[in-house]
Nucleic acid binder design. Sequence first.
DNA 1: CGTGACGTTGAAGAGCGTCAAGAAAAGTGG
DNA 2: CCACTTTTCTTGACGCTCTTCAACGTCACG
Lengths: 249, 249
Amino acid sequence: MVPAAANLLAPLIRKLSGADRLSQAEQQAIQSLPAKVRIVEAQQTILSGGEASTSCCIVLDGWTCAFQWLRNGGRPILAINVPGDAPDLQSLHLPAPDFSMVALTRATLAFVPHAELHKLTAAFPTLAAALWREALITAAIHRAWMAGLSRRDARGRLAHLFCELYLRLSAFDRANGYAIPMPLRQTDLADALGLTSVHVNRTLRELRSEGLISLHSRRLEIHAWDRLCAVAEFDPQYLHLKASGRNAA
Amino acid sequence: MVPAAANLLAPLIRKLSGADRLSQAEQQAIQSLPAKVRIVEAQQTILSGGEASTSCCIVLDGWTCAFQWLRNGGRPILAINVPGDAPDLQSLHLPAPDFSMVALTRATLAFVPHAELHKLTAAFPTLAAALWREALITAAIHRAWMAGLSRRDARGRLAHLFCELYLRLSAFDRANGYAIPMPLRQTDLADALGLTSVHVNRTLRELRSEGLISLHSRRLEIHAWDRLCAVAEFDPQYLHLKASGRNAA
DNA sequence: CGTGACGTTGAAGAGCGTCAAGAAAAGTGG
DNA sequence: CCACTTTTCTTGACGCTCTTCAACGTCACG
C-alpha cells in the first residue's frame, strides 16, 4: 500500500467528466479522497466472488477482468477493465459481488473506502450522478456483449471486442495509432466470447489473413478499422464516450 | 393516459424496499410522484432504441422485454421485465437507450418524468441509493445471462431462465405454487437464450420428458424445483431478493 | 371453415468443440 | 548465454450440438 499522491485519481476524474465537465470543487473532492494504491501482478486475484468488501477499486493502470466460475468448469469472463474503470462500483450498494476479479497484467489499483465515497456522493450530487452513470454504462456494455454471445458468430464477436477495446483505450490515450496492447491470451478471449481457445485461434487466423488485424506479442494492430467495424456490426454509441474518436461504419 | 391513483406505485415501493425498509416520508414521496399510467397491448412498442425519452417507465403489471436489432436479422432479447421492474432507469443519466422495448403481454406501465425523479433523489438520498441499487441488480442479471450464453448448453440456459423468472415473480406474489405465467413464445425464448426456436422446442421436450417442467397455454409449471436448479446450476444470490423464497440446490 | 400464429418434427449440414500432438514463445535457474 | 521447463499458440482429425430448411399439426379466431 502506497499513500495517495497528488494527481493519483486523475483517471477517475477524467472518466467522470464523460457527462459534464466537473467543477473545481468536485475535482478537488475526488483528489482528496483517501485512496490506497496497490500494485498487483498479472494473474493475481483482486476480488473474490461472494466476499464483501469495504472499498471500491479503481483501475489506474493495467487491465483486469471479472469472471465467474461455473461448476462445469467454465469460467466466463464478464467484463474487461482498463485504466479509468471502476469495476466494482456495485459493492457500494450490494452486499457481495457476484463475480471475481483478477489482474490481466501488472496493474495499479486505487482502493477508496465505501464510507468515503458515500460521503462524497452525499456532498456532491453531480458526482453521485456521474458514478451512477458509470454503472449504467457498464450495464450497456454488458448488453452489447450479450447481443454478441447470443447472435454473432466467432468472427463477429472477436471483431466487436477488438473495436470496443480499441475505443475504450483510445479514450484514455492508451492506443498507439491503431495499435493497442492485448494482454488477453487466446484462452481469455475464448472465455470472454463464449468460444474455445482452439476456435479463437482459427478465427484469429482468418481475421489476420483477411488483412483486418495483426496480433502477436500481446499487441493488437487494426489494419482496416472500417472493415473491422463492418464485420463486427459495431456501433460505438453504447460506450457513451465523449469524443468517440473514430466512428463506426 | 390515466391519472395516477392512490396506491399506484406500490410495486415500486415494494421493489425499493429490497435494501432497507423505506420510511413513511419516503413512501409518501414515491406515492405522490406524478405518474402517467399507460396500458399497452402485447407486441406493442414501448421504447425505441436510440430515441431519447423524458420519463422512466415502471412495470406495474404484465411483462415486457428489451432487445436490439442486429443487421444479420438477429433480435437478441437482453432483459425480461416483470411487475415491479423499472426497465429504463438508465434514461435518467444516459441520453439515448441502447435497446428497444416491447410488451410481451398486455401491460400496465407507469411513466414518471425524469425531472420528478431527479427531484426525488435530491430530496431523499436513501431513495437515490435504492434506485441506483436497482440498476446494479439489473447489471448483475445481465452478468448471469452472459455466463449462461457463454458457457451453458441449451438445457442449462432454459432451466436457468425458468428458475430466475420463477423467483422474480414469486417476490411479487405472481407465482401460483410452482406455476408462473410464461408469455414468451418459443421464438422469444430462443432470442433470449441465443438459440433457435427449433432447438428450444426440442430442449423443452427434453425437460418435459424428464419430468422437470410442463409448459403449455402460456403457463409454466415447475415439477422438480431442486432438480431444475441443479440442471441450471442456479444460485439465486445475484437477484438480491429479500427473502428469496426457496433457495438453490 | 378458412387463415394466420405458434408448435412440432425430420433430415441434412455448418459451426464450433474435443482430443491430441507438435511448434513457438516465454519464463527459470544455472 | 544456454539448457530446461512451462505456458501459449498452432494445426489436424473427428464428432457433437445446434442450425437450417421445410413440411405438417394444432389451436384460436373472425
